[in-house]
Nucleic acid binder design. Structure first.
Lengths: 219, 219
DNA sequence: ATAATAAGTTTAGTTAATCTAACAAATTAT
DNA sequence: ATAATTTGTTAGATTAACTAAACTTATTAT
């Protein structure tokens, strides 16, 4: 059984490689909030255990075994987030911290039951895909709102990241997954967008925000 | 923040002192499945941190601070067990192992929400009391079935221990908390009892079993 | 009362996970 | 092309939690 620490390294490697492809130790140590030599020595260890492929001074990658292990941890995390929102009434900005701990629980039945009670969800409350029981995760390729054009109508389906601050920002504007957004106009100067949705006609979103909102383009 | 290991020591001390009063290090090390010197050195540590009062070669006790801390861990454990049974459909024999891990989660809202969703339960699925938010636990003094007399009717309200084997034994006989038992007779030779309940007329229970079943005497 | 046993303690050592300080390799900028 | 910067590595130490072995104190049995 991998320790929670090892599980966190594998998960971090998995998430970094999904978003960037290659991973270097500095990024890893930043994400995990440990010093570089700490991550370095852990990587040697993970390499010996067969979770990670690694050569000195080269970028890292997970082995197939490591990737599957990591995906199953991500599965536990995302199922937990979904459960907390759907069954326990938490807001999407509250669940990450709790799931960060629950994901290390070692109990197949516990997470299978969650999955069942939720009706085998395919995404978590932030629109991120939940890997299946075999650790397979199909990555959807959504467009950021930022690349859409005035006049388009789109549906908000996911977020690039889910920091609690950003989620609270969206809460204040009552913007939720599934919302249909009409792009009214784009400000040429700073690329900010004016969009309308639900009870929010003509809300303005900065470019920074638009690049984090992932949408399905309806037309 | 106390580590899960420290939390387990405090919880073990709490449970041992509830059932026996005094605690010695050997019992503690047996319960926690560590060697005596391991427990010994941890006790010194807990003493320095103010969780435990301890003098060389003397029995141990929790300080008030340690007792409260421990009770709150037991609270998390028992709330979790109740949640797993009531909201997730687990059997009472399945929940201990999971709760043993969930109890270490550090999140006030998580357990408060459980408590709310359950309607502030006072006992866990095995009839053990759930300490309140201040760590207060009122210990009910139930009688074991073993001391009751033929002709009495009693209600099963709790268990002295809840090993998974014992719970499966009760499952096979469809005996649940709340069941009303009529004591038909007692075998003088081995003190085994013949009792009737629900759809089980004239079941025989050994003395060993009767001493673990805690009852409310109805008359 | 003393020998035998049980309980508790100390010492020395291990492993996992972390750190700081010093150094080496690779990359980037001039 | 070489200097500056960034990235990665090694060495040496620390802390928490554990162990085995040796020893001491307390309890029990004869």
């Amino acid at each position: 059984m991998a320790s929670p620490t090892v599980e966190n390294y594998l998960k971090a490697l998995f998430l970094l490689s999904v978003e960037k492809g290659e991973v270097n130790i500095t990024e890893l140590s930043n994400l995990l909030q440990v010093k570089l030599p700490t991550a370095n020595s852990m990587i040697k260890n993970l390499n010996e255990q067969g979770w990670v492929s690694y050569e000195k001074y080269k970028p890292l990658s997970l082995t197939p075994k490591g990737k599957k292990k990591a995906a199953l941890i991500v599965r536990k995390h995302r199922l937990t987030e979904m459960y907390l929102v759907e069954k326990m009434g938490f807001g999407w900005e509250e669940v990450h911290e709790i799931a960060e701990q629950v994901e290390h629980i070692d109990s197949t039945i516990f997470f299978e039951r969650m999955d069942e009670l939720l009706g085998n969800p395919k995404i978590d409350p932030h629109g991120s895909p939940i890997p299946d029981k075999n650790g397979e995760m199909q990555q959807k390729n959504y467009d950021p709102l930022g690349i859409c054009k005035p006049g388009e109508t789109v549906k908000l389906v996911a977020l690039v990241h889910s920091s609690s601050e950003f989620l609270k920002f969206l809460n204040r504007r009552e913007l939720q997954l599934g919302a249909e957004l009409k792009i009214e106009s784009i400000e040429d100067y700073d690329k900010s967008m004016v969009v309308s949705y639900e009870n929010h006609p003509f809300e303005t979103f900065s470019k920074d925000v638009c690049d984090v909102l992932l949408v399905d383009r309806l037309g």
